[in-house]
Design a binder for these strands. Sequence first.
DNA 1: GTGTGTGCAAATGATTTGCATATAA
DNA 2: TTATATGCAAATCATTTGCACACAC
Lengths: 121, 121
Amino acid sequence: MTKYAKMILELIESSGTHLSAEDIFLTLRDRQEGIALATVYNNLNRMCDEGVIRRLTVDGYPDRYDKLVRHDHLVCPKCGKLTDVRFADMSAEIAKQLGVEKAEYDLRVFFLCDECAKKKG
Amino acid sequence: MTKYAKMILELIESSGTHLSAEDIFLTLRDRQEGIALATVYNNLNRMCDEGVIRRLTVDGYPDRYDKLVRHDHLVCPKCGKLTDVRFADMSAEIAKQLGVEKAEYDLRVFFLCDECAKKKG
DNA sequence: GTGTGTGCAAATGATTTGCATATAA
DNA sequence: TTATATGCAAATCATTTGCACACAC
């Protein structure tokens, strides 16, 4: 694992928000790291393949990346903001219904975020 | 509602599969309709905004469009294939937990499709 | 030393946009 | 008529790729 791979992973693991490739690129560049955007993408793709991080694709917005700890997401239908939330784990029921031992899933709940709710009212 | 809007909606409603903008464009063009790809996109976007159809964004694949009847999806992690499936409706629990009357959500279960399962074994 | 990561610039591919024309209410 | 949809081509934007160079093991 290289210098940049480590930095990128650390950023994602330690971040409270959901970072896009560009967020990561800009953060590292601000730290005077001479990293290229393509390198960020390369690393993110590799880590997703290896199952070290998770990609969050939301329609209309650039992909964001997330840690693996089990949780679900609220997605703001206005601004695309993602918020972590934890609903009951349904892996067991789903797996049972599909006739397999283990099942992975992605649950997104559409929910107007605080900021957009304010703007509206 | 225009001629093409009707055709596009009908295609989506009657289709057993999940069509992409290009699928729809090619289908209509094969029927000798002089439709433009941009028109397909325009109509799909409009219908999504109006809440008449639903957009399915799967990372790495072009968007596909779906009818509104409540159901969930299996997503093949190898080929991106979408399959309809119906798990228990969780709107009520989710809404309760969020403190609202109604909640919309999107549930995707990652599950190797038949074809990819064959190829593997 | 040899494979793999990196930087850069150019390519890609899905989707959007601008604008002039055509169509629907 | 008067707004809105359409066709076309060009533009956009996130992401990927090719290639030469630089590390890491």
